[in-house]
Design a binder for these strands. Structure first.
Length: 179
DNA sequence: CGACTTTGACCAGCGC
DNA sequence: GCGCTGGTCAAAGTCG
């Protein structure tokens, strides 16, 4: 997968968990968050096709709005909507991995098999991606992050980092054309 | 003052 | 049918 703006570091994790252990070039994986990528706990059988989960989904305005409206009307009809989900475990002091996106916490609740999972939503107004962050009871240094849905917008931090480069490319483009 | 977190209440799904 | 559980809402509080 291309260094997707949608999952800057997570893409490594999905594509190659072992490679993900060392991604020093990844600006979205600061030292304190260069977590030990332990394994995947997707709830799916192994051999799951990750591609559709990670590739940018083409903008489908109608479907998106309809989906939101559907969700609004049936406020708590959870577990009915089937959305791409994937989870992974990391060993990190930080609960929240800095994946380049901005998240808003909308809930935290004591549940049985995890002490206090936190619920986050992407703050982008058109994006409906959620993630759940919880620490494992057996080993509290391990954080389980579950993503639900796919971002339909570029990663803000990545775009921020790339914008000077893009400007340079734009400036150089005419010059290159002359050569 | 806007963005974000906290936290108690609410409610639907599920198992018994 | 009932109670438990997990996910979400929303008001209030906090922070920069």
């Amino acid at each position: 997968m291309e260094p997707s703006p949608h999952f800057p570091c997570l893409s490594h994790q999905i594509a190659s968990p072992s490679a993900a252990r060392n991604c020093p070039s990844d600006p979205y994986n600061p030292p304190e968050q260069q977590a030990e990528h332990l394994s995947f706990a997707s709830g799916e059988p192994s051999g799951v096709d990750w591609a559709p989960l990670l590739l940018p989904r083409p903008t489908q305005e109608g479907e998106d709005e309809a989906g939101r409206e559907k969700e609004r009307s049936s406020r708590r009809t959870r577990k009915v909507v089937s959305r791409p989900r994937f989870a992974f475990r990391t060993r990190s002091a930080n609960d929240v991995l800095d994946d380049g996106y901005r998240w808003r916490k909308y809930g935290q609740k004591a549940v049985k098999n995890s002490m206090y999972p936190s619920y986050y939503r992407c703050t982008h107004h058109t994006c409906n991606v959620k993630k759940q962050v919880q620490r494992m009871t057996e080993d509290t240094s391990i954080v389980v992050t579950t993503y639900e849905g796919v971002h339909n917008h570029p990663c803000e931090k990545l775009m921020e980092a790339l914008s000077p480069l893009l400007k340079q490319v734009q400036l150089l483009a005419p010059v290159m054309g002359m050569l």
